[in-house]
């Protein structure tokens, strides 16, 4: 019936494309990467939910005020915040086509990320040394999974950043590299957003509990 209706006029409009639609080479990369980030966000949401449920179950073990050093957390938060704006400066230099400026700002961003990672690993080492291991209590299991997953993301972010430094050094600011820098920018700022949740819920609220 429906085919009758469309052909009845004789000059029915065609709703399909005769010529295959041509997309830009990286036209859908950014939205695809954004959707990956949103799904990553759901992983962190479930880890936050676990921490919210189990964060008070100390099993007579150490509690946040015995373990956390807020000065240390403040320094690592500062490093991550600073790395967000240095990455922003790398993006601005990339838009202006300044290869050296982009590389320098990316190196500074990577170093700040390494400072953050070093402080997190130092904290983990310190806690494990004191016997606050993941298997000690539900609170510590939830803590190590949540903060550890974030630290793992930062680790892969730094690996990606080093890879990009090599690629930009070898090929320059070609369109493919620009897309990669933009995707890592989203990833990096996304990790910063997750860290806001971590220091608010785990460290600051943990000290108040």
């Amino acid at each position: 019936m429906s085919s009758h209706a469309t052909t009845a006029e004789g000059e029915a409009p065609q709703f399909y494309e005769l010529v295959p639609h041509h997309h830009a080479p990286h036209g859908s990369t950014q939205i695809g990467f954004w959707i990956y980030l949103m799904s990553d966000c759901l992983i962190f949401a479930s880890l936050f939910a676990i921490y919210g449920v189990l964060g008070g179950n100390f099993a007579a073990g150490p509690s946040p005020e015995h373990l956390f050093n807020l000065q240390l957390v403040a320094v690592s938060t500062g490093a991550l915040l600073l790395s967000s704006i240095t990455y922003g400066f790398a993006m601005l230099d990339m838009d202006e086509g300044k290869k050296t400026g982009t590389l320098v700002w990316l190196v500074i961003t990577g170093l700040l990320g390494a400072v953050f990672l070093g402080l997190t690993l130092y904290e983990f080492y310190h806690m494990i040394h004191e016997g606050a291991v993941p298997q000690r209590s539900a609170f510590l299991s939830a803590f190590f999974v949540l903060v550890g997953t974030h630290a793992l993301h930062v680790t892969f972010g730094i690996l990606w950043l080093v890879t990009l430094l090599v690629q930009i050094g070898a090929k320059g600011l070609i369109p493919a590299n620009k897309i990669r820098v933009q995707c890592l920018s989203m990833f990096w700022h996304f990790l910063d957003v997750i860290w806001i949740g971590v220091f608010t819920v785990v460290y600051l609220m943990g000290m108040l509990r």
């Binding site: 830009a24 990286h26 950014q30 915040l81 704006i85 922003g88 993006m91 601005l92 838009d95």
Partner: peptide, 26 residues
């Protein structure tokens, strides 16, 4: 072809405003 994505990338000023706000809010 310059961006190929239709994204706004911000300016030095918006990055600095965002950074100042996040430092205060932290």
């Amino acid at each position: 072809d310059a961006h190929g994505d239709g994204h706004d990338h911000g300016t030095r000023r918006t990055y600095l405003i965002g950074f100042a706000l996040s430092v205060i809010l932290t």
